[in-house]
């Protein structure tokens, strides 16, 4: 629930009401295992790959991906975090408060950057992330891994690695944790 209340995804204040479980803990674990193999297959190994996590939602997913990649290839993959608040296109339209400071302790030039996030929705966060990344160097390629693709894209952006495609309504909310994926809505605390 802490993820839901994070200030950079304001879905109105309220309480999360679960409607259905989309994936359980085993489902998330298996999807991450498959995505790890897809990343290796697509890039013919781990050489030149770095994971860049979008704060806050992707952090636990990237940690698990890195563990999987280490287990498969016996090699550590660099993991950095990126806060895209200052690159968003809705600054001044709504309150945009950054979460944790960016921490990218390696050069992105000529690397294959795999962006990791929990949910792909309008694509605007990913647009901001790509702008941020080019300020850190010129990567050889940027790829996108998300646990849930929920549709409603507003920009020409598509994921390279997907845990699950889920049709949703715009007013619904997807909550991704290591314990599973829930679909629900935000309701007033009173109702």
């Amino acid at each position: 629930m802490a993820d839901l209340e994070r200030p950079d995804t304001p879905l109105g204040r309220g309480v999360f009401h679960e409607r259905s479980e989309i994936m359980n803990a085993d489902g998330v674990r298996r999807a991450l295992w498959r995505m790890s193999h897809e990343i290796l297959e697509q890039n013919s190994g781990l050489s030149g790959i770095v994971l860049v996590v979008l704060e806050v939602g992707g952090v636990h997913l990237a940690r698990k991906l890195a563990e999987n990649l280490l287990e498969i290839e016996k090699e550590n993959v660099p993991v950095g975090t990126l806060d895209v608040a200052f690159y968003r296109d809705d600054i001044g339209i709504r309150q945009v408060t950054p979460s944790n400071p960016t921490d990218l302790p390696f050069d992105l030039s000529s690397q294959i950057v795999v962006l990791v996030d929990d949910v792909l929705f309008t694509g605007r966060t990913i647009r901001a992330a790509m702008d941020a990344i080019v300020d850190f160097g010129r990567p050889a390629a940027v790829q996108l891994a998300v646990m849930i693709d929920r549709g409603h894209r507003e920009l020409p952006i598509r994921p390279d690695y997907v845990g699950k495609n889920v049709p949703t309504r715009r007013d619904e909310l997807v909550d991704v944790t290591e314990n599973g994926v829930l679909l629900g809505v935000m309701k007033d605390a009173k109702s």
Binding site: T9, P10, L11, G12, F86, D90, I91, G92, I93, R94, Q95, V96, V119, L120, F121, T122, R124, T125, R150, R170, D171, V174
Partner: peptide, 19 residues
């Protein structure tokens, strides 16, 4: 400067539904 100019109005905040 960001504190003063980087925030939006509360009314727009309520109707926002982006991930």
């Amino acid at each position: 400067l960001y504190y003063l100019l980087g925030s939006g109005s509360e009314t727009k905040f309520e109707s926002f539904d982006d991930e």
